[in-house]
Design a protein around this nucleic acid. Sequence first.
RNA 1: GCUCCGAUAGUGUAGCACGGCCAAUCAUGUCAGACUCUCACUCUGACGACUGGGGUUCAAAUCCCCAUCGGAGCACCA
Length: 496
Amino acid sequence: MNSLAPELIAELKEKKEPEKGLQPLDIKGALVMRFAPNPNGPPTIGSSRGIVVNSEYTKKYNGKFIVRFDDTDPATKAPMLEAYDWYLDDCKWLGANPDEVVIASDRIPKYYEVAEQIIKKSGAYVCFCEQEEFKALKDVKKSCPHRDQDVESNLGYWEKMLSGDYKEQEAVLRIKTDIAHKDPAIRDWVAFRIIKKPHPRPEVSDKYVVWPLLDFEGAVEDHLLGTTLIIRGKDLIDSETRQRYIYTYMGWNYPETMHWGRIQIHEFGKLSTSGLKKAIADGTYTGWDDPRVPTIRALRRRGIRAEALRKFMIELGLGETDISMSLDTLYAENRKIVDPIANRYFFVWDPVELDVLGAEPKTAKAPLHPSRGMMREIPVGTKVLVCKSDVENLKDGERLRLKDLYNIQITGLSPLSAKFIGTDMDLVKKEKARIIHWAPPDGQKVRVLSPDGEYSGMGEHGIELELDNVVQFERFGFVRIDSINGDEVLAYYTHK
RNA sequence: GCUCCGAUAGUGUAGCACGGCCAAUCAUGUCAGACUCUCACUCUGACGACUGGGGUUCAAAUCCCCAUCGGAGCACCA
């Protein structure tokens, strides 16, 4: 068949293996996409979706990938200075280095220019209504008195806004849409408001008192940057309708758009950036890379590979439904990468001392990795440490195998003692004796930080040489060796 | 209340634009077994879904209508 009709086979394969994950795009010209976060906290798992999907498409279609910081709110969601670099760093780590980086707070004058033009086209007006007052009118499709101001007056008010003549809340610039639009979300929305709080970035600080809202800033930037395709969360789905008014006034072409639903990760629940910030401040979490926190930084520290996270995000695809996922799939993906390369070590948590009578001191030999030849050597005397959970339900006289060492028979429970009964593996095979791991009492102290708590205990020497590597603690799980503090190794739990 | 949008196994996805090849894909998960000096890995097998009801049609997961459930927006947040 292959020789008769190779193209048929190819076609079959094509049908059977459609584009996995991301749907192919119907691209006409060049592809320009952007990821536009507000850097008011570090990138989270959610951000990684935006980074990965946008960059993946631009890679695939030879497009341009822009990171744009939408940091135009110095008050309610004020940017965090360190976060700008964190975003860029995590992008780089994810293999999504941007072709261009834009910071909105650097480009405020451009937004003023567009605003002025729209005012001149009667597309915007300065509104002095109180918020509730305006909402009441809007809800019954009534325009406010300011809507009919002429261009000259609006221009004058706008100038006064810019020069700081008004207080916060006193005036806003509204985009004229359709005050009777059937969707209340569209009616004459606010494009600029007055904020007198300085911007956290020293280069901007108190340079401006009039700040654009996302819908305006984003609309202008997407045009300026030549964005051709926007993929963003569906919370911004109505933005398009609002922003199109600007595009119409200015005679621009609106980019294509796609939206995705919210992801909720079982393991993390509903944690907002502001909620996290609080929990870190009050000491609930140790920082933005605490293993319990849903940031990219935490995942990195735990030893999740960028490639695994990328694949995970790509395979989620682009659905408008909200999804609720477990990290198991990410872990499985990561395990595939990490398992073949992670060296194996013993780590005994909640250690219990065990005397072995009749044992000669020796050096145990165990493979560094089950499918490779390299061995590790563990010198051991007549005492070993074992996990409390392994010996809790032991019965006197029970026979066990200390992995890669020898067989023992329990002779006493408290204190725990045993006698040496040989080295033969037959015991394990015939009696189906349990095999447990162990550590030498003079081994390497280890502490593991995991999403569900902390484990302290003893490991074998050699662990301290694996700094920054992901290793597997046998019968425990994968960990990333993070640092050495004094005589103790600190590891972060990756996954089972 | 007003405007949008969505619904395939436990979870996430493929299929839906152009109805038949779908007794529905892949992954993950769970269970069982094999392998193994790890509860890891690998292998084998099992489990498991088209939200409900109508309609169109020779034929519906796919088209239409209604219902139900879920979500988003209606901010001087992003």
